[in-house]
Write a protein that binds this DNA or RNA. Structure first.
Lengths: 212, 212
DNA sequence: CCTTCCATGGCACTCGGTGTCAAGTATGCT
DNA sequence: AGCATACTTGACACCGAGTGCCATGGAAGG
């Protein structure tokens, strides 16, 4: 029968079912949360609407918060991936700026989905905390990658952690401003402004230290 | 009798008792947490050791986390107060740097207390989240104060939020490095390095824009 | 056809946190 | 002094998140 095709497509049946349930759970949850608010939505309501047991919910998501915060994880992964893919010749600030550009792109692609989500995460304390935590680990990961690029020890040299942290701050401030203005302005412009104002000498320094 | 002395000291009896209970609660809790770890210490254990009821605990602390995170609040308050007290002539970066100096002082005063606490908060996820949340609101408060100083609108100009965020990042990176090195190095030197590396042009710009 | 594996559901339990009420105690007024 | 008032406390009940455990059922595989 399909034994051979199964070998070719290792994600069959069981795995597909898993994804289905997970997606269904996420969709239902986001819908409920959008209508009632996060704190007002209980796990029991979610699982009732999704038609699974309470126990199953916690097999798919480690916590109720995870279901909302997942999107941030994806964004972080995209940023990390882009940074890892930047050419090694590029300076750290430029590479990081480029990495955050893909995040901006992802946010501006469908603002009607991204804006409510960011608002939800800024306004709900529990979610905000988780968001900040994600930012924190992302900062460490970016710092590690920057250190790797430049052959530095992230435990000895403050540089990588500082560049990562400052970039994250710039990004965060830009996104917050963008959110406050209901996504009206150009997010990329805001990010450009934030990055250049946090790193006023970067361009000049890059020019000076690059081999002529 | 002491009726007159009571009038002179408006915080009498009731208030003193409150403080006593609160201190006792905090002391016992920190002791238990230091011995067993945070997650492993239940509120019931704390209240049993302190000799009060469970309900009373939550009248003094809004959550179990608060009992540990309080010290961060104090540090934040000190930073804010110092920033508010800086002379208006001082540039924003310099003022903020001075404000964080008092925090460094407070940390280095008794490292044998500060170090374990910071470690606890970095290593315990729930506490780390709360710590990051505190940092986040501190960032907003500092940004607001900076905006006030310079007559800017914190919702329109990215500057204040950026300066506050970058300073916080620098401070955080410095403290983390200091913690990693078991408080061996000079924290103030680390902060100096972090601040100057995140703001390489600040001194030059300040010199240039100051009236000759 | 039989076995083995895995997802699920149900259950009981822990723990953090809150609302409510009753009792005790200091304070203030007469 | 005596009484009314407000505040603190403790006890109880309750909720919601999260976990461990076990039984069941259905799919994959020999």
């Amino acid at each position: 029968m399909h034994t051979s095709s199964e070998a070719l497509a290792p994600l069959s049946m069981a795995e597909r079912k898993r994804r289905l349930v997970r997606d269904q759970l996420g969709e239902v949850a986001l819908h409920l949360v959008a209508r009632q608010g996060y704190e007002e939505t209980t796990v029991d309501q979610i699982v009732a609407a999704a038609g699974v047991s309470r126990r199953t919910f916690f097999r798919y998501f480690k916590s109720k918060e995870d279901i909302v915060v997942e999107s941030v994880s994806d964004l972080g992964a995209a940023i990390r991936a882009e940074l890892a893919a930047r050419p090694t010749g590029e300076g750290p600030e430029a590479a990081v700026r480029a990495a955050f550009a893909v995040a901006a792109e992802q946010l501006t692609l469908e603002p009607e989905k991204a804006l409510p989500l960011t608002r939800l995460m800024f306004d709900t304390p529990a979610l905000h905390r988780r968001f900040l935590e994600h930012q924190s680990v992302l900062q460490e990961e970016l710092a590690a990658e920057l250190a790797r690029r430049e052959g530095l020890d992230v435990d000895e040299d403050l540089g990588p952690a500082l560049v990562a942290g400052v970039a994250l701050t710039a990004f965060q401030v830009a996104v917050e401003a963008w959110t406050r203005h209901n996504g009206d302005g150009d997010l990329n412009l805001l990010i450009d402004e934030a990055f250049s104002r946090t790193n006023p000498g970067a361009a000049a320094r890059r020019r000076a230290t690059e081999p002529g």
